[in-house]
Amino acid sequence: MGLSANVLNILGLVFLSHASYEHSLLPSAAQAPPQSSILPSVIDPNINLPIDVVLETIVSVLLLCAGVVLSSPDLKPIQWNVWAGRLERSKDARQIKGFGQGGGNPYAALEERPGFLDIRAKRKEFAAWVKDGGQGDKVQ
Protein backbone atom coordinates (compact mmCIF):
# COMPACT_ATOMS: atom_id res chain seq x y z
CA MET A 1 0.00 0.00 0.00
CA GLY A 2 2.83 2.41 0.82
CA LEU A 3 4.67 1.88 -2.46
CA SER A 4 1.61 2.51 -4.62
CA ALA A 5 0.83 5.66 -2.61
CA ASN A 6 4.37 6.94 -3.17
CA VAL A 7 4.07 6.20 -6.90
CA LEU A 8 0.79 8.14 -7.05
CA ASN A 9 2.38 11.08 -5.21
CA ILE A 10 5.38 11.14 -7.55
CA LEU A 11 3.18 10.89 -10.67
CA GLY A 12 0.93 13.65 -9.35
CA LEU A 13 3.92 15.91 -8.69
CA VAL A 14 5.38 15.22 -12.14
CA PHE A 15 2.08 15.99 -13.88
CA LEU A 16 1.53 19.11 -11.79
CA SER A 17 5.01 20.43 -12.48
CA HIS A 18 4.58 19.70 -16.20
CA ALA A 19 1.23 21.51 -16.28
CA SER A 20 2.71 24.52 -14.51
CA TYR A 21 5.67 24.52 -16.93
CA GLU A 22 3.33 24.48 -19.93
CA HIS A 23 1.30 27.26 -18.34
CA SER A 24 4.43 29.37 -17.97
CA LEU A 25 5.19 28.94 -21.69
CA LEU A 26 1.82 30.34 -22.75
CA PRO A 27 1.88 33.87 -24.16
CA SER A 28 0.69 36.29 -21.50
CA ALA A 29 -1.90 38.30 -23.46
CA ALA A 30 -1.39 37.56 -27.14
CA GLN A 31 -5.06 37.31 -27.95
CA ALA A 32 -8.04 38.14 -25.76
CA PRO A 33 -10.46 35.25 -25.39
CA PRO A 34 -14.01 35.67 -26.62
CA GLN A 35 -16.65 36.87 -24.19
CA SER A 36 -18.61 34.05 -22.58
CA SER A 37 -22.24 33.83 -23.56
CA ILE A 38 -23.15 31.92 -20.41
CA LEU A 39 -21.38 33.92 -17.69
CA PRO A 40 -22.12 37.55 -16.96
CA SER A 41 -19.27 39.91 -17.80
CA VAL A 42 -18.61 40.61 -14.12
CA ILE A 43 -17.55 37.03 -13.29
CA ASP A 44 -16.17 35.97 -16.68
CA PRO A 45 -12.53 35.07 -15.96
CA ASN A 46 -11.26 35.90 -19.49
CA ILE A 47 -8.59 33.22 -19.26
CA ASN A 48 -7.69 31.26 -22.32
CA LEU A 49 -6.06 28.06 -21.04
CA PRO A 50 -5.65 25.08 -23.35
CA ILE A 51 -7.79 22.14 -22.36
CA ASP A 52 -4.77 19.83 -22.02
CA VAL A 53 -3.23 22.04 -19.31
CA VAL A 54 -6.54 22.15 -17.42
CA LEU A 55 -7.04 18.36 -17.64
CA GLU A 56 -3.44 17.66 -16.67
CA THR A 57 -3.79 19.90 -13.61
CA ILE A 58 -7.04 18.22 -12.55
CA VAL A 59 -5.58 14.71 -13.02
CA SER A 60 -2.44 15.65 -11.06
CA VAL A 61 -4.46 17.03 -8.16
CA LEU A 62 -6.62 13.88 -8.06
CA LEU A 63 -3.50 11.68 -8.10
CA LEU A 64 -1.95 13.71 -5.29
CA CYS A 65 -5.13 13.52 -3.21
CA ALA A 66 -5.35 9.73 -3.66
CA GLY A 67 -1.65 9.33 -2.85
CA VAL A 68 -1.89 11.39 0.33
CA VAL A 69 -4.97 9.52 1.52
CA LEU A 70 -3.43 6.12 0.80
CA SER A 71 -0.13 7.00 2.46
CA SER A 72 -1.72 8.23 5.68
CA PRO A 73 -1.60 5.86 8.69
CA ASP A 74 -4.66 3.89 9.67
CA LEU A 75 -7.11 5.65 11.93
CA LYS A 76 -7.41 4.38 15.46
CA PRO A 77 -10.90 3.83 16.84
CA ILE A 78 -12.11 6.22 19.48
CA GLN A 79 -12.89 4.20 22.56
CA TRP A 80 -14.07 6.60 25.23
CA ASN A 81 -15.56 3.77 27.26
CA VAL A 82 -12.14 2.11 27.63
CA TRP A 83 -10.53 5.41 28.69
CA ALA A 84 -13.32 6.25 31.13
CA GLY A 85 -13.30 2.74 32.58
CA ARG A 86 -9.57 2.94 33.18
CA LEU A 87 -10.05 6.27 34.95
CA GLU A 88 -12.81 4.87 37.14
CA ARG A 89 -10.77 1.83 38.18
CA SER A 90 -7.49 3.63 38.87
CA LYS A 91 -7.30 6.05 41.78
CA ASP A 92 -3.82 7.11 40.65
CA ALA A 93 -5.11 8.07 37.20
CA ARG A 94 -7.81 10.23 38.76
CA GLN A 95 -5.37 12.40 40.68
CA ILE A 96 -3.89 15.41 38.93
CA LYS A 97 -0.13 15.26 39.39
CA GLY A 98 0.69 18.80 38.32
CA PHE A 99 -0.01 21.50 35.81
CA GLY A 100 0.82 20.37 32.27
CA GLN A 101 1.71 16.82 33.26
CA GLY A 102 0.04 13.81 31.73
CA GLY A 103 -2.55 11.80 33.56
CA GLY A 104 -5.26 12.97 35.82
CA ASN A 105 -8.97 13.22 35.36
CA PRO A 106 -9.84 16.24 33.23
CA TYR A 107 -13.20 16.42 35.01
CA ALA A 108 -11.78 16.26 38.55
CA ALA A 109 -12.43 19.94 39.20
CA LEU A 110 -16.11 19.42 38.40
CA GLU A 111 -16.41 16.32 40.57
CA GLU A 112 -14.71 17.86 43.59
CA ARG A 113 -16.60 21.15 43.68
CA PRO A 114 -18.76 21.91 46.71
CA GLY A 115 -22.30 20.71 46.34
CA PHE A 116 -21.48 17.96 43.84
CA LEU A 117 -23.73 14.97 44.39
CA ASP A 118 -21.90 11.66 44.16
CA ILE A 119 -24.55 9.35 42.71
CA ARG A 120 -22.51 6.16 43.20
CA ALA A 121 -21.93 6.86 46.88
CA LYS A 122 -25.64 7.62 47.37
CA ARG A 123 -26.52 4.40 45.52
CA LYS A 124 -24.27 2.40 47.88
CA GLU A 125 -25.83 4.11 50.90
CA PHE A 126 -29.29 3.30 49.56
CA ALA A 127 -28.36 -0.36 48.94
CA ALA A 128 -27.04 -0.63 52.50
CA TRP A 129 -30.23 1.01 53.81
CA VAL A 130 -32.38 -1.49 51.85
CA LYS A 131 -30.32 -4.43 53.21
CA ASP A 132 -30.96 -3.19 56.74
CA GLY A 133 -34.67 -3.29 55.96
CA GLY A 134 -35.14 0.45 55.91
CA GLN A 135 -34.16 0.84 59.53
CA GLY A 136 -31.78 3.45 60.85
CA ASP A 137 -30.79 6.72 59.27
CA LYS A 138 -32.81 7.94 56.38
CA VAL A 139 -30.94 8.51 53.12
CA GLN A 140 -30.80 12.19 52.28
Rank of each mutant, 00 (worst) to 15 (best):
L3F: 11
S4P: 11
S4G: 09
S4T: 15
S4L: 10
A5T: 05
I10V: 10
L11E: 02
G12N: 01
G12M: 00
V14R: 05
V14E: 05
F15R: 01
S17Q: 12
S17T: 15
H18G: 11
H18S: 15
Y21M: 05
S24I: 04
L25N: 05
L25R: 08
L26T: 00
L26Q: 02
L26R: 06
P27A: 07
P27C: 02
P27M: 07
S28E: 03
A29K: 10
A32C: 08
A32Y: 03
P34V: 01
Q35P: 08
Q35E: 11
S36L: 12
S37R: 09
I38S: 08
I38Y: 02
I38E: 03
L39F: 02
P40I: 01
P40Y: 00
S41N: 13
V42S: 15
V42A: 14
V42M: 10
V42E: 15
D44L: 00
P45E: 04
N46Q: 14
N48H: 09
L49M: 07
L49D: 00
P50N: 04
I51G: 05
D52C: 11
D52S: 14
D52H: 13
L55Y: 05
T57L: 04
I58H: 07
V59A: 02
V59Y: 01
V59H: 00
V59N: 01
S60H: 00
S60A: 12
L63G: 00
C65F: 09
A66S: 06
G67E: 00
V68A: 08
V68M: 07
L70W: 03
S71T: 11
S71F: 04
P73E: 08
P73T: 10
L75T: 14
K76T: 07
I78V: 15
Q79W: 09
Q79Y: 09
W80M: 09
W80G: 14
W80K: 13
V82D: 14
W83R: 12
A84F: 06
G85I: 04
G85M: 04
R86Q: 13
L87K: 07
E88M: 14
R89C: 13
S90T: 03
S90L: 04
K91P: 11
D92W: 11
A93W: 01
Q95Y: 13
K97T: 13
K97P: 15
G98S: 08
F99W: 13
Q101S: 15
G102A: 09
G103E: 08
N105F: 13
N105I: 10
Y107P: 03
A108Q: 15
A108I: 15
A108M: 12
A109V: 10
A109R: 09
A109P: 03
E111Q: 12
E111C: 15
E112A: 15
R113C: 11
R113T: 05
P114C: 05
P114K: 06
F116R: 12
F116A: 15
F116P: 09
L117D: 13
D118E: 06
R120G: 11
K122F: 11
K124R: 15
E125P: 02
A127Y: 10
A127N: 12
A127P: 06
A128I: 14
A128C: 07
A128F: 03
W129Y: 12
K131E: 07
K131C: 06
Q135R: 10
G136D: 02
D137L: 07
K138Q: 11
K138E: 11
Q140P: 09
